[in-house]
Structures are given as structure tokens and as C-alpha cells.
Amino acid sequence: MSGALRGWADRRPGSEVADVRRRVLIGAAVVVIIVAVVFGGAFAFQRRLIYLRDAGPVPPAAQVLPGGRDVTLRTADGLDLTAWYFPADAARAAVLVAPGNAGNRSLRAPLARALRAAGLSTLLLDYRGYGGNPGSPTEAGLALDVRAARGFLAAESRVPMVYFGESLGAAVVTGLAVEHPPAALVLRSPFTDLAAVARRHYPFLPVRLVLRDTFPVAGLVGKVRAPVTVVYGSGDTIVPPEQSRAVAAAARGRAVEVPGADHNDPALLAGPQVLEALTAAGPP
């Protein structure tokens, strides 16, 4: 048989079909491997993307604000967490500040200074794994941390308590407020639930299938038996403003928009709208 005929025989229809099938199977295997790697990575490392902790030590509270105290919060699972307490003279309320997912409590010092000037005592906590604290953050762990913070304030002060949650912290204090109603609940830049905001930033991932921590704010806030105020920025690029408005609607509460403010702008850290919401929330 000539070379041309042998080549034709080698490329007969059955051989070509088998070759196509083999390539399809190889391609499918590659896709499965890629998907498995993406899913596995998203599952294994998701908490590193959620909790952007600053684990470094923080200065003493008195160095940050005269009269401040370094306090220890004992959690139900046995962790000792450090926090700052800034008592106000003749305080009319105490504010429990649950921070967002990044940094540590030193970023909230301007807020504590302004609240104390307004006659509100303030507790700035750091979650487990943040600000030199032991442990690693999880949804269940943060719930224990904020309950320890509330326990400290309840024992330390006999004045009404206001919960203030920033972003992720809004989810943390909403869960606390369902169990232990405060005098008022103020949520800054809350999302409806973690999957909703994660899907905004990672649209290529099936986030609801892989998320281990869910933080369902909108699903819980309607159960809170206290006045709810939501403060958010119209220019927020982290938590879509419509999600914060949806939380306010679910709570049947007051919504305060800060025009043009992005998620980490000073106006949303200790700006006048935030301070007004907190001071108005406490008793006169």
C-alpha cells in the first residue's frame, strides 16, 4: 500500500471519531480540575478574604483618650479579648461599637472621642484575631465576642445601651439585638447578607454554595424589638446602597443617606450623620 493510502486508512472515520471523543474528554477533565481548584480555593481561603484583620498590638486606651481604660472581655468559649472603654461623665447611654471586617479598634478612636463629648460612654472591641487578640474570626466566634462585650457593659454601666455596627459589624450586632434588645440599634453600611455582597465582588463564583459564614442581616433585623437607624453612603463601592436601604426597609426603620460617601470615607466613620444617629438613638 502506498504512503498516501496508508495515511488515508489511518484517518478513517472511526479513528477520527475516537480522536474527537478523546479530546472532548481531556477538555472536560481540564474544566473539572479548574472548577475543583477554584471551588476548593474559595472554600479553604474564603475567611482570609472576609476577615481582613490587623493582628498587630494597639496602644493603651489612656494614650488614645485620657480617661480611657483597657478592659478584658471573657467569651463563652474561653477567650480573653482586649478592648477599650471610654466612660463619659454622667453618661446618658453607652454605645457598643462592633467594627467592620478590617483594621482594629484604633481606627475608631475619633468616634469614641466624639461620642464621649456628647455624653455617651463607648466600648470599642476587637474581635478574636484582631488587635492582638487570640483566636481566629468566624461568624459564630464574632457572635460570642459581641455577647461578651454586652456582658461587660451591662455589668459596668446601668445606663441604656445602644448597639452600633459597621458593615460586617452591623450583622454581628443585629444578631445580638434579636437576643438582647438594646435601647436602639444603629447600622452603618449594612448588607442584606454576606452572599449578596460577595456576589457583587465575585460574580464568577457560586458564593451561596461555598460560603461558610452567612450573616443574614435583612432576614433578622425585622425581629429586633428596638428602634433601628441605617446610615449609608450613596457612593458606597463595597456595599451597594440599595442593600443598606433594603435593610432599613426590612427593619421598618429610619434610613439616613450620606450623599457621595464611599464605604471607608471619614464621613461614615465619625461624620455628623453618624454622630447624629447615635446621639439621637440614646435617651435625651
Rank of each mutant, 00 (worst) to 15 (best):
V97N: 05
G100I: 04
P87T: 01
D70Y: 09
A28M: 10
W8H: 14
A140N: 06
A154L: 09
V274Y: 12
D213W: 10
F43G: 00
G222K: 01
P110D: 03
A277H: 11
V31N: 05
S136E: 15
L275W: 09
A267I: 09
L278E: 06
G253A: 07
F45G: 01
R128C: 04
V159P: 03
R108V: 06
D236C: 09
L176A: 01
V162M: 02
P216C: 05
L194C: 04
L52T: 07
Y202V: 10
I238L: 14
T279K: 08
G14A: 13
G7F: 14
G260P: 11
R188T: 04
E156F: 02
I238F: 14
P241S: 11
G233F: 09
E242V: 13
P216R: 00
T138G: 07
G282N: 10
V178G: 00
S189V: 11
A44V: 00
L220P: 00
A170T: 03
I34A: 14
A98N: 02
V71D: 07
V35L: 14
E257R: 11
G78N: 12
G41R: 02
S167C: 00
D213E: 10
V32W: 05
R252G: 14
A44R: 00
D236Q: 10
A149Q: 02
A171K: 01
A249C: 06
G260Q: 12
F43P: 00
V256W: 05
A248L: 03
T72K: 12
P203W: 06
D236A: 11
L269M: 14
N101R: 13
Y85W: 10
A93E: 10
A170M: 01
G119A: 10
R147I: 00
L153R: 07
A249E: 15
P60L: 12
N133P: 01
A184Y: 06
L5M: 15
L211P: 00
L153D: 02
H180G: 05
A83R: 06
A251F: 00
A98Y: 03
R12C: 11
G165K: 08
L96N: 02
E156N: 05
